[in-house]
Measured scan of single mutants.
Amino acid sequence: MATGGRRGAAAAPLLVAVAALLLGAAGHLYPGEVCPGMDIRNNLTRLHELENCSVIEGHLQILLMFKTRPEDFRDLSFPKLIMITDYLLLFRVYGLESLKDLFPNLTVIRGSRLFFNYALVIFEMVHLKELGLYNLMNITRGSVRIEKNNELCYLATIDWSRILDSVEDNYIVLNKDDNEECGDICPGTAKGKTNCPATVINGQFVERCWTHSHCQKVCPTICKSHGCTAEGLCCHSECLGNCSQPDDPTKCVACRNFYLDGRCVETCPPPYYHFQDWRCVNFSFCQDLHHKCKNSRRQGCHQYVIHNNKCIPECPSGYTMNSSNLLCTPCLGPCPKVCHLLEGEKTIDSVTSAQELRGCTVINGSLIINIRGGNNLAAELEANLGLIEEISGYLKIRRSYALVSLSFFRKLRLIRGETLEIGNYSFYALDNQNLRQLWDWSKHNLTITQGKLFFHYNPKLCLSEIHKMEEVSGTKGRQERNDIALKTNGDQASCENELLKFSYIRTSFDKI
């Protein structure tokens, strides 16, 4: 039985969820670079991206490699990797027998973001014989899940209580170790020597080791999670996991709180800001991140802002960003909400898709409305799209047979046209069989910064309504002859009103 693990408890099935942008060198404390989270699957090609990484700022997932063999891993080693800020997950990587050479110096898994409450997941690794993470000293947050690894031993010899604050939620089941077939031998045991430290858990006094050649490092209890030197002297209180010299914040392997210019500090002093819960960055760093993602459509890219001495992905609820200094300031009234469309555009074809934009005031991208039916549609669209004030790209209304009016965009005031449909149009209306009105132009103002209007096959939309939009939106004169079809717009509506004058002759039985 794995020490510190839980057996036999019912657990939810383990679901495996399925960018080499360097964020800056980590400095003297770390020998390499800070790398983003990685999802490495199918083959070993991307694994080489770990070569210079000291910190993975995010998670590391290595999974679904069915053609790899043990010899493929023999020359692979990433000794610079010290810390993973989120979680480490391995799933069905064939041929991998140990992690001792792959990650010989991995010391800390912070667990800032977890995989279903777990910071370390080893699942269905069919050839893994031992973990071998002999320098792993601290899992700051989260638990361990090690399950269905039929060859995995050296679990009962690990004292997880020396690595985690609590072992109650560890789930370590259905491994070879369960069948008591392992016969784990710690260093020196074969020669009758006791080389590794022994600890007591559940009444068992057991030597602690990761492999037959690597003991588990056990520091004096007084050192807590700070770690200790090879001689057993406690590291500085700002260290986490390990250090090369005692009581020196510049000799830590990793930091308990924050890293700044080669030393570990309790908090980031001005003019620095907390970033990702582990390091200090200056304003320029946060500003660069903001600008890199301002026009990016890459998933996970955030326009970072500053709030409460932190550089964070977005302002919290009730705050909006001051564009001059990136500071989050309290909103006066309802907060603006910028919604970034991942692929640059979004099609609204149902109430469900409209709900995804609920509360958005600025759309960074283009909207395509293609709704053919739905219950209580006008009210639903207004509830979900009615706060949109600005669209950076274009607005396209296409084959939306259920629409009679666009009044559900009740606050839309600006279409920038930074991206144009077919390279020309910022407003595009095609084949809307029941569209009769755009907006009530006596109450609604709309500016279209650039781009043209396109109207074709809107049989109940009168040309007068379209011409009014040209005047109000500032697009009059931009359109070419064929942009607004004269014969297919309003051709099934009563669009022309003329005053009919009647004269009559009164007659009676005795007068003409």
Rank of each mutant, 00 (worst) to 15 (best):
L29V: 05
L29M: 12
C35L: 00
P36C: 03
G37R: 06
D39E: 08
N42R: 03
N43F: 08
T45H: 05
E49T: 10
E49K: 15
L50D: 00
N52A: 13
V55F: 06
V55R: 01
G58C: 01
G58K: 00
H59I: 04
H59F: 09
H59W: 07
I62G: 01
L64A: 05
L64V: 06
F66L: 08
R69A: 11
R74L: 03
R74W: 06
L76T: 11
F78P: 02
K80R: 11
K80V: 06
D86Q: 08
Y87C: 00
L88N: 01
F91I: 01
R92L: 03
R92F: 02
Y94K: 13
E97H: 04
S98Q: 04
L99E: 00
K100G: 07
P104K: 02
P104R: 02
T107C: 03
V108A: 11
R110A: 10
G111C: 02
R113W: 12
L114N: 04
F115A: 14
Y118L: 02
A119I: 00
M125D: 03
Y134P: 06
N135H: 08
N135M: 15
N138L: 07
S143E: 02
C153E: 04
C153K: 01
A156T: 05
I158F: 02
W160H: 00
E168R: 06
E168T: 12
E168F: 12
D169T: 05
N170F: 06
Y171R: 00
I172S: 14
V173C: 13
N175P: 06
D177P: 08
D177A: 14
N179S: 09
G183C: 07
G183D: 14
D184A: 13
P187R: 09
P187I: 10
P187F: 15
G188F: 04
T189I: 13
K191E: 03
K191S: 13
G192W: 05
P197A: 11
A198I: 05
T199V: 11
T199E: 08
V200Q: 03
N202S: 04
G203T: 13
F205S: 02
C209H: 00
H212G: 09
H212K: 14
S213P: 01
S213Q: 07
C215P: 03
C215M: 02
C215E: 03
C215I: 02
K217S: 09
K217Y: 02
K217T: 15
V218Y: 06
P220T: 09
I222N: 12
S225K: 05
T229M: 14
T229I: 07
A230T: 07
H236G: 10
H236F: 04
H236M: 03
S237T: 09
S237C: 15
N242D: 10
C243E: 01
S244N: 11
D247P: 02
D247R: 13
D248Q: 12
T250E: 10
T250S: 09
T250I: 09
C252Q: 00
F258L: 13
F258G: 04
F258Y: 12
R263L: 12
C264H: 00
V265F: 13
V265N: 04
T267Y: 15
P269G: 07
H274S: 01
Q276P: 05
V281I: 05
N282Q: 04
F285K: 02
D288F: 15
L289E: 12
H290V: 12
S296Q: 13
S296R: 14
Y304K: 05
V305D: 02
I306Q: 12
I306C: 14
H307L: 11
N308M: 13
N309T: 11
K310R: 11
C311S: 01
E314G: 09
S317A: 03
T320W: 08
T320S: 05
S323Y: 07
C328H: 00
T329S: 09
T329E: 01
L332F: 01
C335I: 03
P336T: 15
P336F: 04
